[in-house]
Structures are given as structure tokens and as C-alpha cells.
Amino acid sequence: MSENDLPESELEGRKTERRHYVVGIFWALLLTLAAFALVAADTLPPNPARIAVSILALMQIVVHFRYFLHIDLKQSHRDDLHLILFTALIVFLMAAGTLWILFNLHGRML
């Protein structure tokens, strides 16, 4: 069986899905380049630069989830999406809480 034996609908499907990956890698590369360029150019002071690259990273994570991990708002992905959002909440509580506590403690040790 060669590739050309695929039904018309599947050929169509392969094309859309390949485009999906191409769009994904395009955005991922663009955001990566932007983040590295921003820091390499050294135009912004440290704090705004850090906020900017954090936002770029967040955008890139969304791109990866959307285009590589195929998480979207369709019904068939609801369970996965709920799981990811709940994880995001737990990760936020744990990471933010840890940072808050440790920096607060550090501030009191000076």
C-alpha cells in the first residue's frame, strides 16, 4: 500500500495537520528569537526585560500546548483541558507560595 492509496479525506487531513505543525514551529521559533534578542540587545533594564521574556515564555507555552500537544477547546479534550488548568492552579499555588515564603524569610534575615 503506497501513500497514494489513502482516501481523499485523509490526504486532506494530513495537509491540514502538517500545516498545524508548521505554524506551531514558526511561532515557537519567532518567540524564542524575540526573547533571546531582547536579552542579547541589552536595551531594557533587568526588571522590565525579565517581565518581557516571561510574557514571551508564557505565549510560547500556549503555542506548544496548542500546536504540538493539540489541546484546544473542543469537547473531546475537555478532560485533558480541565486537568491542565487544575495543574496550572496547583503549580501556581506551590511555586508562588514557595517564592513568597522564601523571599519573605530571606528579607527577615538581612
Binding site: I90, M94, G97, L105, G107, R108
Partner: peptide
């Protein structure tokens, strides 16, 4: 969910500020 938001009460005496 709330059980993930209370862990610090096991070490109230560790030295963080009163607000925390």
C-alpha cells in the same frame, strides 16, 4: 483545593512576617 493553601501553618514559628 484548600488543602494546598495552608501548609505554612506547620511552621508558623520559622520567622516569616506576621502578614504571611
Amino acid at each position: 483545593v484548600l488543602s494546598f493553601t495552608v501548609w505554612l501553618h506547620h511552621f508558623f514559628t520559622m520567622g516569616q512576617t506576621a502578614n504571611v
